[in-house]
Every structure is written in structure tokens, then in C-alpha cells.
Simulated scan of single mutants.
Amino acid sequence: MNRDLRHRLDDLVHACGLIQEYVADDALPETLVYDAVRMRLVEIGEAVRALPVAVTASEPGIPWSRVSLLGERLTRRYFDTTPSVVFGTARTDVPSLCAAVRRMRDTHCGPA
């Protein structure tokens, strides 16, 4: 299935939002949150990989190549991924990524 730019950016905003909800919910078991966040980070990596360079260039503060490799690392090097890295990424990097993707969506796709 081929997704257009707006849909890919919407997918990213949605995945970031869910990650933020997961890590904020203290009622959820940590192992469940860890697994859910990892899966959403894989999704983010795949979605970013399909974004045009002209679009990602508008947000140079985000390390897009590292984000695009995130999914690959989480699936192929799963044994090297610690909860502290996953939760650190979720709490520190995901909010910045989400804000950047929202700006990109507004700039490149216009209002919804």
C-alpha cells in the first residue's frame, strides 16, 4: 500500500501520541509499556524511512537518518536494546519528534 505524505505524517503523529500516552500511564505494567513503545518506535522508523528528503530537510534539528534506522535496530538488534534506552527515547526524543512532524505536516500539507 502506498501512503501519501499527509498520511505518513499523520501516522507519525499518531504513533508519537500513543507512546506519550503509554509512558504517562502508571497503571500499565512496565513490560507491557516497553513492548508497546518498542513496536511504535519500529513503526516510526519505517514511516520516516519513506519521507522525502526535501520534507525532512525542513527540520534539521532531528537526526532523521538515526530515526529511520531505529526500527531496524529494534528488530534486528533486539537483544541489545535496554528498557532505559527505549524509555529515554520515549520520554526525551519522541516529544521533539512529534513537534517537528506536526510542523512538517503544516508546512508541506497545509491544514487538515
Rank of each mutant, 00 (worst) to 15 (best):
N2D: 06
R3K: 01
D4V: 00
L5T: 01
H7N: 07
R8G: 05
L9K: 01
D10V: 06
V13F: 01
H14C: 08
G17D: 12
G17E: 09
E21L: 15
E21M: 13
D25N: 14
D26R: 14
L28I: 08
P29D: 15
E30D: 15
T31I: 03
T31F: 11
V33M: 10
V33L: 10
A36D: 01
L41D: 03
V42Y: 02
A47R: 07
A47T: 08
V48L: 00
A50E: 09
P52H: 12
V53K: 06
A54T: 09
V55R: 05
T56D: 14
S58Q: 13
E59T: 13
I62T: 07
P63H: 12
S65M: 13
S65A: 15
R66F: 12
S68H: 02
L70C: 07
L70G: 00
L74P: 05
Y78C: 09
F79D: 10
P83V: 12
F87W: 03
F87S: 07
T89N: 06
R91L: 04
D93V: 07
V94M: 07
P95K: 10
P95C: 10
S96C: 14
C98N: 14
V101C: 05
V101M: 04
R102I: 05
M104L: 02
T107N: 06
T107R: 14
H108W: 15
H108I: 10
C109H: 06
C109A: 07
G110W: 06
G110R: 13
G110L: 09
